[in-house]
Amino acid sequence: MVDTSVSLSGLVLDNPIIPASGTFGYGYEYAELYDINCLGSFSFKGTTREARFGNPTPRIAECPAGMINSVGLQNPGVEKVISEELPKLKECFSKKVIANVGGFSLDEYAETCQILDSQEQVGLLEVNISCPNVHNGGMSFGTDPKMAAEVTKRVKAVTTKPVYIKLSPNVTDIVEIAKACEDAGADGISMINTLLGMRIDLKTKKPIIANKMGGFSGSAILPVALRMVYQVYDAVKIPIIGMGGISTAKDVIEMMLAGATAVQIGAANLVNPFVCKEIIEKLPEEMAKYNLNSLSEIIGGAH
């Protein structure tokens, strides 16, 4: 028997497969299709203090080997997530979940994280710092190491569960941001969020996405994600949840060799709703093929 278990800051997962935030809702759409308890964990839809409708539509554009989304963090707000979504999720998922948190000010991040930290179902907090900072001219928290460190400190000060900071790849030096988060007390890093992209409709000669730009993800971004995880692994000691373009068991092994302790799978769920289950079933076979007995032993193996 091969060992697929991994540990994220003390949270032990049966396997490293985690559906990525925004692509798995609050779980129950997929629970109609298969028993989602086979997942290592899952990261729920980015949740903010207040309810958000998000961006105008069209929010989706197809790309070769990927897609652009500009959902804009549509969610019912943290209170409704706790009163309505988490109880429903509990009925179909008995393991700990990852609470993905978005925010537009330091206070908002701290408050939302504090509220979710008190939830027994939540195993760790994943703080998405790709959102624009409304108090700072709309500049993203995730593109400035000082701001990234500030969010980390504020959240750490009010929470007890492990805090993972989710990094944006739309920066010159992602290593610098990751180090700033580690220095500020982050327990781990989640990376990468989507790459800023665009498609133009030749018939209308205008951008397809109503907001013009959106986040590009899917198979095409795997090499970018691998490179960034590899670089950050060299620079920090805290665990990394690696994601970006993963759609096969082979991709999972590759991402772990680059330095990821666990992985998330995003856009691939939307095209093949069974992809996480299929990867989990395929992992032992794929490990055997490369003479691997334990997944946790291969983390960072490419260095």
């Binding site: 539509t57 989706i60 939307l270």
Partner: peptide, 15 residues
């Protein structure tokens, strides 16, 4: 509407 998933998971098609 342009759809990501078509089964309610991505919020791509909200109105």
């Amino acid at each position: 509407e342009r759809m990501g998933c078509g089964f309610g998971a991505c919020m791509g098609c909200s109105c």
